[in-house]
Write a protein that binds this DNA or RNA. Structure first.
Lengths: 231, 231
DNA sequence: CGCGAGATTGATGGTAATCAACGAACGTGG
DNA sequence: CCACGTTCGTTGATTACCATCAATCTCGCG
């Protein structure tokens, strides 16, 4: 593992204040691996054997049922996934696949559960991380139940633009079909939603999306801090 | 507080294995109060000052945005709510109101956060409870994104019937409009969904719903343990 | 009895999924 | 370098699903 990767992981809220030996035990027992795009890292219905940390790249969380499939989240560096399943020693509710060439650290779940008992500070960080993930998911549920597709798109754009601080310019890092699934619609409908939203201050050229008229998009999307807050 | 209420709370997964003094400190600092139906206990956007425990009755968690409103969960005895917001010392993402005459124990958030540092067993229980709530919400999101309204209804009925062990008979404990909101549809559409699933082995008379043909309903609803499992 | 809240039913329009066809971009192999 | 093929995205037509508006019905209760 490169020193800057180790430092990035150490700097995760989950590990930042943990004791050195806790961190060492966890990372020491883990495997750091590279994957090409499109690799399925975990599958729903299977036991959650490893806690995953995305060190580099991009990972899509998704789920299927009765022949349908939907994307639930996109995990960027440095982020963690299936923490809840690992802690409960349960099966995965979600699958995960790489969207880009990615580097992922996998820590045996058993080690994570051991660390819980051994390091109170780490445990407190786990509580915070879980609570944060919990709240993120509730926001996702509100987003899905309270808004139309075009509104979800508008708010997603506002959020992305704000997160990147790139003055309203957004370059999609993955295919539009993934975005459509994340936003809870079909690819066809994303196309139409993008067309709709052009009337509200947005321009689209391929994977380049720009918010030309921030005020107009705000008026249309009506962002709500209790749904769209970055965290 | 009646002794049997104290015992029920003590028996919650969250408190079951906590040290006696932890439990005493938490419950001792709490207020046990009775409320008539329709009382708003907490409001979204406000700080989460108290952890709430539903001792008796029924509480609806709901949220609003941009003039729309939806129900997110129904909490029954003995259940806990807004744990995540209390732990993060953050604002509520959801509001809560009583659906029936209810008894609720309110524990100051500060005490809960203190107990985290003082009792490792309690902390471990908090981790488990949070992870469980997290996974429940992900199931809710999958339910919403992967199924139609009638399918959500069918699976809700199957789940209720199984939970009550009352041989397929379900007596609604709250108004249908609440159920419709919980299932992510309008009251009108719930009526139609109920009409639809009459063709799949369900009978409805007022608030009495019965699964006459379990096999037929299963075939229609296609329950999935990764969405519908009680927990 | 008659009122009123909740539930149902009907009519209509909007939103989204599906099916189908076309177009653009890209990579490969001739 | 170009022809071809594949994948992705877009567009159009149709259908399914759902929301809204309006009217009626049911039932509990004063």
């Amino acid at each position: 593992m490169r020193p800057e990767d180790a430092a990035a992981i150490r700097n995760l809220p989950l590990f930042r204040n943990a004791r050195e030996e806790t961190f060492g035990a966890l990372v020491g027992a883990g495997f750091l691996q590279r994957f090409p795009p499109g690799v399925v890292l975990i599958k729903e219905r299977e036991p959650a054997d490893f806690l995953h940390v995305v060190v580099e790249g991009l990972v899509e969380m998704f789920a299927s049922s009765a022949g349908r499939e939907t994307s639930l989240d996109i995990v960027r560096p440095v982020g963690v996934f299936i923490l809840a399943a690992v802690l409960n020693d349960d099966v995965n509710l979600q699958s995960a696949r790489t969207l880009q060439r990615s580097q992922v650290l996998m820590i045996p779940g058993e080690r994570v559960r051991e660390a819980l008992g051994a390091d109170a500070v780490f445990t407190r960080a786990v509580v915070t991380e879980l609570a944060r993930g919990y709240r993120r998911t509730i926001k996702g549920l509100k987003n899905q139940k309270l808004r139309t597709g075009a509104e979800r798109l508008g708010n997603w754009l506002l959020q992305e633009a704000a997160a990147r601080g790139t003055n309203g310019r957004i370059e999609l890092a993955f295919e539009k079909r993934v975005l459509s699934s994340l936003l809870g619609m079909t690819p066809e409908n994303l196309s139409r939603a993008l067309a709709t939203i052009k009337m509200h201050g947005v321009s689209v050229r391929g994977a380049e999306i720009a918010i030309e008229n921030h005020r107009a998009l705000l008026a249309f999307a009506q962002p709500d801090p209790l749904i769209d807050a970055p965290e």
